[in-house]
Amino acid sequence: MKLPEPRGEISDAVVDALRHEPGAPLPATFSGAADPCTDEDLQLTLMLAYEPHYRGFDGVDENWEWDLGLLRLRTSAERHLEEALRAATGPPAPVEPGEVARRLAELAAADDGPALGQHLQTGADLTQFREFVVHRSIYHLKEADPHSFALPRLSGRPKAALVEIQADEYGGGRTERMHAELFGQTMTALNLDPAYGAYLDFVPGVTLLAANLMSMFGLRRRLRGALCGQLAAFEMTSSLPNTHYGNGLRRLGGDADATRFYDVHVEADAVHEQIAAVDLCGSLATQEPGLCGDIMFGAAAGLYADRLAATHLMRCWTDGRTSLRRELDS
């Protein structure tokens, strides 16, 4: 993907450095974000620091992935973000390993975000639906990739559970069934560019948060419990909304190719949520009881990020304005 436009002093310095050889000077720390979860400069800085671990930026030296200056700056920004997420979600109540799956189900059931799915099913116009797809493209075009980082960090039953989920996410090894590919089909049907990262400049920091949170949890072994908890919460709040999304897109004229991504996720995530909560998180908690708190933190943080993003979309649309940083071509 192309290097994005900077959104502040720090991301400006990072974009500039990435155009040079690794080792180019960078700020040592990130400071000054009032709310790290939604701060444009901080979220874009994290995206710039994570993407070299995925598919990289066009024309950027691949050795930036392990550049000590970029890692140092990333660590500083991550510290702010993790503190903010822990403060926003509060200390997880003590939970016994045998109770983790049930507690995750309770947490997901208690999630009371705005009725984004309902709105997309019955009220949204095509412009709003296309905006929704653009927001989600930041993650869905690399769907499942952050969680693959956890595989070598797990063993035994939790590892088998994650492999079972990931194999399905990647289409059982068939390209045309990979969920990221299906999402590209939906984008194409909506006359949107399905190229990886094409809309990075369009989405606000609150949208980058959802993807950055997964990258932070995925790239730091210490946070493997949080990554698994986030995955469980994501799957546990997915099958019902995907029914709404698919119905909404059908209402707006989407054909079977356009809605396939959502239709597949209704049934797939009904499977994944059981595996993620019971076989992945439940057995990880039994194997490593010290991770119980982080499993619950990751779930709460993921739900919090989704709630912030949904609130942003609904607020913008209620006010009659775009939820993106710039309007889409029709």
């Binding site: 079972e164 399905d168 059982g172 099958s239 499977v271």
Partner: peptide, 20 residues
Amino acid sequence: GATVALCRCGKSRRKPFCDG
């Protein structure tokens, strides 16, 4: 997928599959 979830609450609208 290779693994499927079958409805057992009777309320799914994708029967025989679970839809949550």
